[in-house]
Nucleic acid binder design. Sequence first.
DNA 1: ACCTCCATTTCGGGA
DNA 2: TCCCGAAGTGGAGGT
Lengths: 251, 251
Amino acid sequence: MGTTTWEDPTVEATVATLEEAVRAGDTITVFAECEVEYDGRATGYLGPGERVILLKPDGTLLVHRPAGNDPVNWQPPGSTVTADVADGDPVITARRSAPDELVRVFLRDTYQLTTFAADDTAPLELDGTETDMHEYILEHPAAVDDGLRAIEHERDTPYGTIDVYGTDDAGRPVVIEVKRRQASLTHVDQLNRYMEQFRASNPDARGILVAPAASSRVRRSLRENDLEFVALDEFATNRGEVASTTFEDFQ
Amino acid sequence: MGTTTWEDPTVEATVATLEEAVRAGDTITVFAECEVEYDGRATGYLGPGERVILLKPDGTLLVHRPAGNDPVNWQPPGSTVTADVADGDPVITARRSAPDELVRVFLRDTYQLTTFAADDTAPLELDGTETDMHEYILEHPAAVDDGLRAIEHERDTPYGTIDVYGTDDAGRPVVIEVKRRQASLTHVDQLNRYMEQFRASNPDARGILVAPAASSRVRRSLRENDLEFVALDEFATNRGEVASTTFEDFQ
DNA sequence: ACCTCCATTTCGGGA
DNA sequence: TCCCGAAGTGGAGGT
């Protein structure tokens, strides 16, 4: 459970410690000035700079600069991590296949190295996802359309999966695409794609985009494609009270 | 440039060191058993487990478990990070607005804490991006279509930006959507959206999806929408030699 | 392995 | 600021 720390390790100590820690399944951080080479789906080179390198027992490699949410270079889980010496410096190599990718971190100056036999099995509990909105709509179809009967969840079609499928009070098929955040043009595209085949057999089929908000461009695009928009706040799904929805119909 | 490390710091030392390091603009790692609460666009709770916490001078907070490429909890750049004591334990708080979000990390057992005044200004050089393909096509339009004249790059329309716009040897408008990887249905959607208005004024307008490959479903969807596919390997953009492209026309 | 789609997506560019 | 689209997207779930 504890950590072991090496300050200013020698080249040999760095390589030996990394190899041993990888073999032991430790989580490792390295503080170092380094260069990074990447070759795979794209190709990259990162010149010398001071960074934090994070290695995980599942084969993940992350190189973090002092700014930014995302690592500047990385290798996802499943890659094989090795350490050796090249030109007198320690080098961390992370390889994976499918896609074939290679990341090499050249440690020019290693300030500190820590190994950590971390134990973490707690699941992340997350609410307010799109799935939560689906469930809300299935339980409260009137929040989307007054006469709506929600029939099917995650309905498969040759061109993708429809979030919610149902019928309205006039018996027309209703295809609903749900988004947990501001609707965008790509969401209109998605709904349009699903509608193509439904309207081929039933011109009266309705398509509704449900989202907390939509830009005017999105609304115009919906209108032009005879689709509807219903504003449903994502957080309505988390509250006990009935959602106060705004209904907007572009028929 | 160097790092400073504290092993098994007391609650007071942890909070004081974190506050001082944040003020100083250091990059910080904490190895600890912790719990995490998140409230913002969604809501989350992560039970006790051993993790690595990474804090950056730009306000980034990352909580990494011993598995996975992505952090289990995070706060992107721009958030305000503070440290204090609650119920006898150190708590790291990261707040931001737009969107309003709050992450709190409750340190139940702090094994190690490191501060690092990292200096890193090297730019990442990356090749093989979609932009590189755009440039290749603009310089070698014949790789896409024999009589193609590429006229405009990143052409703005009311429904999005067209990658490459041009005319063919018959003077027909050609809309080109470029993808650096296997084409998908969403890419067909995108091209369809751009084509709607062009075909409204010119029914002969052509739409071409350029990508290294496309599944049979994507090809069928293109056919059904009178669109074309041209297989252009992404790496053709990185090579000095002329690309050997496969031309496929679904007219 | 491929395909589709969500994500607390993040990030960058343009209006 | 909003909006749009790329990303070495990653990750999950289905076939």
